[in-house]
């Protein structure tokens, strides 16, 4: 407990130092440089009036912006102006749909690969070639075949989430102890009962580890995918605010993406603990 307290204190100290330094460094000096024609300056916006770049927002600016964005996260003002909560909701929906579809394919297929060395030998080269491909490389193909940007984003999530679950399921199933299978055999348990009552619980911790890796990758990829397809989602929001030069909004979005990703990981971590067993 004392250790945790000390860690928490140190964390606060580091945060305070980093944010303080940032606050001081980002506070602009008094405007200098040549004065512009006031009419022109008005067109360019406040930053350009001083003849400067858009300034890096200070932590205090970001905190104020975060308050504005998170106070009313679910507003909808037309297609291009929706609350950050709505955007997050779209991203989560895509990630969970793609991840769910991937699990539906990867876990049964991984079972078959794990149980059949022939199938493993046949499919392993395909998996090894496709697995290192960046999921975004599939995007044009998805757009061309599916012809729907939303479904294409889900497909990209599906394709990136499938590999860790597929590999972990087949590995977990293939490494079920022979003696447990022998127990099932001497008790004349049929193939379904053996699969559901022996192999599945034995491999469940490994499968859950794969699922946890998958959802992490899916959450990484959704931001990039939504930057490409546009329309909705937290990735689109980040890109949109970049086009608006709303740097503070981007920082807020980064923090929110991190927090949601952490929550997803914790959720699957909890599920993994529920199926864990110890010898």
């Amino acid at each position: 407990m004392a250790l945790r307290l000390r860690s928490a204190l140190l964390l606060l100290l580091i945060l305070a130092a980093a944010l303080g330094a940032w606050q001081i460094a980002a506070t602009p000096a008094a405007p200098t440089g040549p004065a512009l024609d006031p009419e022109y300056a008005k067109l360019l916006g406040t930053a350009a009036q001083g003849g400067q770049q858009t300034p890096m927002p200070r932590p205090s600016d970001i905190a104020a912006r975060a308050w504005q964005l998170l106070r009313d996260p679910f507003y909808v003002h037309g297609a291009n102006d929706q609350g950050i909560g709505i955007q997050l909701g779209w991203s989560l929906l895509r990630v969970l749909t793609g991840f769910g579809l991937a699990a539906l394919v990867a876990i049964p297929l991984g079972f078959l690969i794990g149980m059949s060395p022939v199938l493993h030998g046949a499919l392993d080269p395909i998996i090894q070639v496709l697995r290192p491909v960046s999921p975004l490389a599939w995007m044009p193909l998805a757009l061309y075949t599916i012809r729907d940007s939303g479904a294409s984003a889900i497909f990209v999530i599906f394709i990136c989430a499938i590999w860790p679950m597929l590999l972990n399921t087949s590995f977990g199933v293939a490494s079920v102890r022979r003696e447990w299978l022998n127990v099932a055999r001497t008790l004349e348990a049929g193939p379904w009962r053996t699969a559901l009552a022996v192999i599945l619980p034995a491999a469940a911790p490994t499968i859950m580890t794969g699922a946890r890796i998958s959802i992490g990758i899916a959450w990484l990829v959704i931001v990039a995918a939504e930057m490409l397809v546009g329309g909705t989602g937290i990735g689109y929001f980040v890109w949109n605010q970049w086009n608006n030069l709303a740097i503070a909004d981007i920082v807020v979005a980064i923090l929110v993406i991190g927090l949601v990703g952490m929550a997803l990981d914790q959720l699957l971590g909890r599920a993994a603990r529920a199926v864990a067993w110890r010898e």
Partner: peptide
């Protein structure tokens, strides 16, 4: 010709299902 319920095995490593 195969394992059957009329023959039970006590395994050296007990082979209990840990879950």
């Amino acid at each position: 010709s195969g394992p059957a319920l009329d023959r039970a095995v006590i395994f050296q490593s007990h082979a209990l299902l840990p879950w």
